[in-house]
Design a protein around this nucleic acid. Structure first.
Lengths: 182, 182
DNA sequence: CCTTCCATGTAACCGGTTACATGATTGC
DNA sequence: GCAATCATGTAACCGGTTACATGGAAGG
């Protein structure tokens, strides 16, 4: 009974607090989406499958006339979550269009290559800004491990922005050097 | 006429040298797959679509009795490649199971958390080793921008391995501190 | 001879996004 | 009264992987 991608996020999200599907989605959008996204189209059907498999249990907790189902981990679900967490394999997938363009940047004029590198840097700086905002929003209230992950994201995008800034300077210097010769 | 994901890799791969579908796949597996993968199931059908759209042209160049179609960029294909390269938008998608587990690591015992962080570090070190091998294999023969991208991958995984090594030390120190109290 | 590599393809499947539909609640 | 948010869901679509099938060539 292998745990699916969304299944992992859901079980993890329910680890400490019971939540509605909507709340799970909101949590994901504010946190894991930077390294593990999930959409409604996955969450709601998967909640049903997890319930069917006995890993989560849903109880109706409406707010007024608005129906609302809150899901919590069953002991079996808790075991499945732990089993996944201690399992040794770790997948890592990246789709970075900036790197792909840089890889093929030989087809560009020198100044166009500089512009490309610049836009990659700006992209990482934009993510960095967003992550810093999130960090301020939650100030002290974030639990330990989530705060580590956030710190990692911040450090990482800072590092990336710097790497591309360095390359940008180098390429830009070459462009100016050529102009001076001409 | 928006260029698809595989379409970008294919056009880029044909930028300097005409190639067969098999050769494209091999190139991808040795280079872009770390940040942009592509399978046979995508490459061959997409080559047909690109030919239909007039972006690439295939010519039959068999080796002996073994049929072989070599594809090259048409002027239209070259324009499409350049248009994509200079377009401002850059997608960035990450699926990092190590980060996801770390995010939920509150469900683990302290020593289990250390083991997790250690395995994430080892994972990045393994990728790093692989990238260093690739770097040696191709020594001087790699074109400029691909070598930048390779250097980036190496620096990045080195940085990541170090980040997790630091966290690992910190968490391990806490475990030992607790043991001494007990 | 046998294995590995070159070479081309496809069908089934799966995971995930997008877009839409519906309706109650809260706060301005 | 209106907009934003809470809340649940699904159908159509798309992108991508896996597994398989076929067969020639090269090298030990």
């Amino acid at each position: 009974m292998e745990l699916s991608g969304v299944g992992r996020v859901i079980l993890g999200s329910l680890q400490r607090v019971p939540r509605s599907g909507y709340e799970i989605k909101r949590l994901v959008d504010h946190s894991t989406r930077f390294f593990w996204a999930a959409s409604y189209g996955q969450i709601y059907p998967e909640l049903r499958r997890l319930e069917q498999a006995g890993l989560v249990a849903g109880t109706s907790e409406p707010t007024g006339e608005r129906r609302r189902t809150v899901h919590r981990l069953t002991p079996k679900g808790r075991r499945a979550l732990r089993a996944w967490l201690v399992a040794p394999d770790l997948s890592y997938e990246l789709r970075d269009e900036g790197l792909l363009k840089l890889f093929f940047a030989g087809a560009l004029a020198p100044d166009e290559a500089v512009a490309l590198v610049r836009s990659v840097r700006l992209q990482h700086e934009a993510v960095l800004e967003r992550l810093l905002e999130i960090q301020e929003e939650s100030a002290g209230r974030r639990p330990r491990f989530p705060s580590y992950v956030l710190a990692y994201g911040i450090d990482m995008h800072r590092w990336m922005a710097k790497w591309f800034a360095d390359l940008e300077r180098q390429l830009a210097a070459e462009v100016t050097a050529k102009e001076e010769v001409a």
